[in-house]
């Protein structure tokens, strides 16, 4: 084990370059998957004919496949049928599709948990379906969704590491390169990378706890 060599300025900078890609890809994917997941979740909750069942099957299909497969498939199989995405775009697309399916379930679950009596009361006091959803159901549902959503976002951030399979130069990929240069760096590098992931995710969950306290 060579801690001093592993933590040279060059290696640290190289790992931080990887972290930067990890954060960018995770950030964009979190935003996109949240928006798409909310839309699909609301569609599923609203029981729109045709559209809701179709969404159900799509979400089920994606949730039951490994993300690693989805990442590899989007990057290297879709081009065979004419859909060509660049490296970073493919990584973001795969993460977004997979996590949006997960988030859709969280959103639907959150909305369904709202007491039916409230909805009836709102409807009978003259609010439209959409108004009830927007003013009564969504605000309460969202509050309940915060904890599972945050753990999903943390999952997403961790899952970016699976993009090593398409050589995305994120944190794990760069760690592998550092380890490749000298095997004595393996354990020190993995330990440091674990610490980096832990710190980022821990900060994320702390942030969410503050958010929860504020909204509650």
């Amino acid at each position: 084990m060579d801690f001093i060599g592993a933590y040279s300025a060059d290696n640290l900078k190289f790992l931080l370059d990887g972290l930067y890609i990890t954060l960018i890809v995770a950030f964009v994917s979190i935003i996109l998957s949240f928006v798409i997941g909310c839309i699909i979740g609301v569609i599923r909750y609203s029981e729109v004919p045709v559209l809701s069942p179709v969404m159900f099957y799509l979400v089920e299909l994606i949730r039951n496949l490994p993300l690693l497969l989805i990442i590899f498939f989007i990057r290297f199989a879709l081009p065979e049928v004419g859909i060509k995405l660049g490296l970073i775009t493919a990584a973001i697309a795969a993460l977004t599709i997979f996590e949006a399916a997960m988030i859709a379930e969280i959103v639907r679950g959150g909305l369904t948990s709202i007491d039916k009596g409230q909805i009836e009361a709102a409807r009978s006091s003259g609010l439209s379906n959409f108004q009830t959803l927007w003013h009564i159901v969504l605000p309460q549902g969202l509050r309940r969704m915060v904890p599972p959503l945050v753990s999903q976002f943390i999952s997403l951030l961790k899952d970016t590491s699976l993009a090593v399979v398409i050589s995305l130069p994120e944190l794990m990929h760069n760690a592998n390169i550092v380890i490749g240069h000298s095997y004595g760096y393996a354990i020190p590098t993995l330990a440091l990378v674990a610490l980096i992931y832990f710190t980022v995710n821990f900060l994320l969950s702390m942030l969410s706890r503050r958010l929860e306290n504020k909204t509650a």
């Binding site: 290297f76 081009p79 065979e80 060509k84 660049g86 490296l87 398409i166 050589s167 130069p169």
Partner: peptide, 16 residues
């Protein structure tokens, strides 16, 4: 662009 033995032919045929 980075290729591996596994990815070089797909990437070439995709026109990347």
């Amino acid at each position: 662009k980075e290729v591996t033995s596994k990815t070089r032919i797909p990437m070439l045929n995709n026109g990347e």
